[in-house]
Simulated scan of single mutants.
Amino acid sequence: MARRTFLSFCYQDDHWRVQQVKNMGVVEEQPLLSANKWEEIEDQGDAAIEQWIDDNMKGKSCLIVLIGERTAKRKWVKYEIKKAFNDGKGVLGVYIHNLKDSDGNQAAKGQNPFDAFKSGDEPLSKWAKVYNPPYTTSSNVYDYIKDNLADWVEKAIELRS
């Protein structure tokens, strides 16, 4: 049975790449919103966004941050990381910049979003491992993520147990 997870990412840049990960069928995740639906929630303000995140993170065992070029700088990604960690969920990151987007383009590698966080005196990276597929060809990156994501999720959950 696939673990229930929450996907965190930069929608504007990476929705096509994230859809590829979602289509792998390796983990169960929250529904991905269309741009229009996200805008509708966004127009209601920060409290509505926080409520959507909180509601969709309930019952999930792990947060998977799908890291693209600008993911680490996104306000809501930071909120999701903090919430998931404080709620005791497994937390991990996967670089997706080498998956092609809808135009067939890859992106530059982004910063590790966990670098900005600490738990007490410990860096969050003690609990939040980041995986960077060792390939530059999109199809190889896809296969590597598909073959390993379920194991990475289990390891992240185990680290928090």
Rank of each mutant, 00 (worst) to 15 (best):
V26E: 09
R3H: 15
L124R: 11
Q12P: 00
K73M: 04
D43L: 10
K83M: 11
Q111T: 03
L66D: 01
D121N: 06
L159H: 05
D87S: 14
K109E: 05
D43N: 15
T71G: 10
D46V: 15
T5Y: 09
E40F: 04
I145H: 06
K89R: 15
K78D: 07
R17V: 06
A108R: 12
E29Y: 09
V141S: 04
E80Q: 11
I53V: 15
F9C: 09
Y144R: 04
M24Y: 03
E69Q: 15
D151P: 00
K37T: 13
S34R: 12
S125M: 12
Y11K: 10
V141G: 08
I49N: 01
K126M: 15
M57Y: 06
S139R: 12
N105E: 06
G120C: 10
K109N: 02
A156S: 13
K82C: 09
K60I: 01
A108L: 07
D115N: 12
A84M: 09
A116L: 06
S161E: 05
L99E: 01
F114N: 02
K58E: 14
G90H: 02
G88E: 06
K126E: 10
E154W: 00
Q111R: 06
N86R: 14
N23F: 13
K73I: 04
P133M: 14
K82W: 02
L32Y: 00
V141N: 04
G120M: 12
Q30I: 09
A47F: 11
H97A: 10
V153L: 13
E154Y: 13
W52A: 05
K82A: 08
R3S: 14
A128F: 13
A128D: 02
L63Q: 07
K78Y: 00
H15L: 04
W38M: 12
H97L: 00
A128T: 08
A108T: 14
I49Y: 08
E122K: 14
D147P: 00
K83D: 00
Q106N: 11
A72M: 03
D151R: 14
A108W: 04
I145V: 14
P134I: 13
K146I: 07
N86P: 01
K37E: 15
F85C: 10
N23W: 06
K155I: 08
G104R: 08
P123E: 12
N132G: 03
N98M: 13
D87R: 07
I53Q: 10
E42T: 04
N56M: 12
P31V: 13
V26M: 13
P134W: 05
W38C: 11
S125H: 06
V27M: 10
A47T: 15
N98C: 05
I96C: 04
N36T: 05
E28L: 13
A116G: 01
L159C: 07
K118E: 11
E122H: 09
D55Q: 11
V141A: 12
L33S: 07
K83S: 03
E69C: 15
P113Y: 02
K109Y: 02
P31I: 13
N112C: 14
D14R: 01
K75N: 03
T71N: 07
A84L: 03
